[in-house]
Nucleic acid binder design. Structure first.
Lengths: 181, 181
DNA sequence: CGGCGCATGTAACTTGTTACATGATTCC
DNA sequence: GGAATCATGTAACAAGTTACATGCGCCG
């Protein structure tokens, strides 16, 4: 459990960040396989800080804005490494679109076509973004030891999104042929 | 929200079932895109029943075992159809393996190889099961109006699992080449 | 006679979301 | 002047997991 803690520790292991920056990074880079809300993030930051795994650098005001920057402590690093070595426990996914597809003989084919078109568009965007990320990463592959690993993650996203798109195109075709019956 | 309610309504729309059978069906057929626990299931059954969307057929004892069979009511069907027509809201996934991969420059390559081999084996099993399900479905495609739709869901699983397996094979290769450096 | 599968459920807990509150700066 | 972005946070709620309790039937 406590997965949110490890995302935070992981990101802070690269560089000090504010809560807001952590959230933005997750939304931007982890979007296709992870999500966090502020309501989870800020309390977890506080808890990690209380337990001495991360450190709150004195809040300072930058151009009038208050911000708290956190950085990881050796204890946090230890904890992070320990987690990385443990077997992967949870793989939680809930794809509502598949649930609806499963029961879709109860509604008009047009309805499902609409749902899948939305799904398709959304993952087309993801795929574009991932391809962009890949080409940027490939150019700076040797500039940080984690770049090759991040590239593997991006590659996962590309493969899976391609599968999503292929499926949705085929399924739209199938539903259209059903609708015209 | 209230996604658990719709899984239950969906399954009961096909045939009356007991709580245990619902759980087993989800574990068996939805495993690759959904999961539920008893702690979620039984209270939700009660709530649906209290609200008149499903009906508890008088508990009866079959071969010494007490069991409650639930069946869907017209109100439940209406609710289910309404949900099916709403846009798909949530697609929640959290793939811990990708999180670990992202930060894996902090641990030995062998550690990640182990994690990914486990991931690979688990999805090999899923793929086998899905292929089996596909061939069984293809033979009874016209025996129930929802079979073609279920086949689309199974096809999703096959495509995605193939992508998972391709990724994990490639990533293991990459990590092995890193380890030997 | 022990373990597994069938069968139902609850309580305590953890996790996660949503809505709200606050307020500055930047850009149009 | 208003919207978007930066920035921090909380409270109320919803969702989900885990561990536990109970007990029958079946198979070896």
């Amino acid at each position: 459990m406590r997965q949110t803690e490890y995302v935070i520790l992981g990101l802070l292991s690269e560089s000090p960040l504010t809560g807001y920056q952590i959230k933005r990074t997750i939304d931007l880079r982890f979007r296709f396989f992870w999500n966090e809300s502020y309501g989870q993030l800020y309390p977890t930051l506080k808890s990690l800080s209380d337990r001495g795994l991360i450190e709150e650098q004195a809040m300072f005001v930058k151009e009038g804005r208050a911000q708290k920057t956190y950085c990881i402590k050796p204890e946090g690093f230890k904890e992070l490494r320990n987690w990385l070595e443990q077997p992967v426990e949870r793989e939680s996914l809930r794809l509502e679109i598949l649930l609806k597809m499963y029961f879709s003989n109860l509604v008009a084919a047009e309805t499902m076509i609409g749902h899948i078109e939305t799904f398709n568009k959304s993952h087309q965007k993801d795929l574009q973004w991932l391809k962009q990320a890949r080409s940027e990463l490939e150019q700076v592959l040797d500039q940080h030891p984690n770049h090759p690993y991040i590239l593997r993650v991006v590659d996962f996203g590309i493969k899976v999104n391609k599968a999503y798109l292929k499926w949705s195109r085929e399924t739209i075709e199938f539903l259209k042929s059903e609708a015209s019956k």
